[in-house]
Amino acid sequence: MTKIVVDVMLKPEILDPQGNAVASALPRLGFTFAQSVRQGKRFEIEVAGEPTAAQLAEVEKAAEVLLSNPVIENYVVRVEK
């Protein structure tokens, strides 16, 4: 079993009110390290055995069509070792 991870993040130019809310909550709890916070989504997809190039291409396609909205989001597909 191999895990394929798809990280989806709002594009840098898109306002992220949730990330901003987290950023402003951190100092209230005494955490002062953050200059900014962006919040995204992570998908963990399990496949049998080592993923083939064709399977990875399919995952890329799924990330483009369903898992992300390319109008406002970017995605990265990687295989977790």
């Binding site: 709002l10 898109i14 306002l15 009110p17 949730q18 809310a21 909205n69 109008v71 406002i72």
Partner: peptide, 17 residues
């Protein structure tokens, strides 16, 4: 409609959450 790409753009979280 935006997700279907019949209309451009996207609707995102209200700015004040």
């Amino acid at each position: 409609l935006c997700e279907s790409h019949l209309l451009p753009g996207a609707l995102t979280r209200n700015s004040d959450l």
